[in-house]
């Protein structure tokens, strides 16, 4: 955009009002206003519905395709309060009604040493006795054993509930299949909606992202997942699972710009009752808003073992571990 100012216009008066400095100041204000609007992203200026939960335009409730994030401010879009975790402790997680563990579950639970949540034996941990101990036992990463610190796969639940830095994911929906792509760790999972039955997982290798089938119940896509590899954690607080775990996710698109999932984990080997997570909600992000250097889409945000190994030398130094 260019602005042309003619000297004759400026020299009309004695220069008390239309002096050069005032013109530059006015242009600066105009530039600041324009730049601020542009900084909001092109969609924000031209489309008041973008990422808004007030959007009342018709849409297909059975189509989840798109780019989704739980922190749309990352993309200079209006905030989404309902996208924030109903957190019981610092950070993101499965949350909801954490069930008691079986004896077997408790043994496995105690083998996991997370680095998130309230710090073990801290004042903050003691001040929240109502929060499950799983979220009140964090230790420094150098002494913990979070598999994420070894670039091991996060697993289905942890991928879906991750909400750090925007929690960007993409849903690619075809007639028979939905591919869910996750930015952090550049992982993906497939949800088959072709009517197939779940496999007998004893015949297959367990998978970190399991085997998932979905079927519609009205406008709700009910996804059932089995065959989960039992090395994964439910979330960053180190809750374990067994290979008998069954995950149910109920996806809905309550408005054009919102995607919601309600998850239930049933694992009688580890937990005494089903575990209902807190709802997770994403905001739809226009492709143009999720763009770096003109390239739109989720980032290839991989966990690379050699990078992680270098980082861990710094991490260990911070933790006093040689």
């Amino acid at each position: 955009m260019t602005m042309r100012i003619h000297g004759s216009f400026l020299s009309r008066s004695r220069g008390t009002f239309l002096s050069r400095s005032r013109v530059w100041a006015a242009a600066g204000v105009f530039a600041l206003t324009g730049a601020f609007a542009l900084a909001q992203g092109p969609m924000a200026k031209s489309d008041p519905n973008v990422s808004s939960d007030k959007d009342t335009r018709p849409y297909d409730k059975h189509n989840f395709s798109g780019l989704w994030a739980r922190n749309p401010q990352t993309y200079k879009l209006p905030p989404c309060q309902e996208c924030r975790d109903q957190a019981l402790a610092p950070g993101y997680g499965f949350y909801g009604d954490v069930p008691p563990r079986t004896a077997e579950g408790e043994k496995k639970f105690n083998l996991n040493h997370p680095s998130r949540g309230y710090e073990l034996n801290s004042k903050e941990a003691a001040a929240h006795p109502e929060v499950d101990i799983g979220m009140r036992r964090a230790i420094i990463p150098a002494k913990g054993n979070d598999p994420e610190g070894r670039c091991e796969p996060l697993g289905a639940m942890r991928l879906v509930t991750f909400s750090g830095g925007g929690a960007t994911m993409q849903m690619v929906q075809e007639k028979d299949l939905i591919i869910q792509r996750f930015e952090w760790t550049w992982d993906n999972r497939e949800i088959w909606i072709d009517g197939r039955q779940l496999p007998k997982v004893d015949d297959y290798l367990p998978r970190y992202n399991g085997y998932s089938v979905g079927k519609w119940e009205g406008d709700t896509l009910v996804v059932t997942t089995v065959g989960l590899d039992d090395r994964q954690w439910v979330d960053q607080f180190g809750y374990p699972i067994s290979d008998k775990a069954v995950l149910e996710e109920r996806y809905t698109r309550p408005s054009p710009n919102r995607l919601r999932v309600d998850m239930t984990l049933t694992d009688p080997v580890i937990y005494t009752r089903p575990w209902h997570a807190s709802p997770k909600i994403w905001a739809l992000i226009p492709k143009e808003a999720m763009s770096i250097g003109g390239w739109s889409g989720i980032l290839e945000d991989r966990c690379i073992p050699s990078d992680e190994a270098l980082f861990n030398t710094f991490r260990n130094h911070a933790g006093g571990v040689k």
């Binding site: 922190n71 401010q73 964090a138 230790i139 990463p141 750090g164 830095g165 925007g166 952090w184 911070a318």
Partner: peptide
């Protein structure tokens, strides 16, 4: 820019 979620990965905060 407003600080985004800062502890996105790896729980570093607790060490410092």
């Amino acid at each position: 820019l407003i600080c985004a979620s800062v502890w996105a990965h790896h729980g570093s905060a607790i060490s410092y």
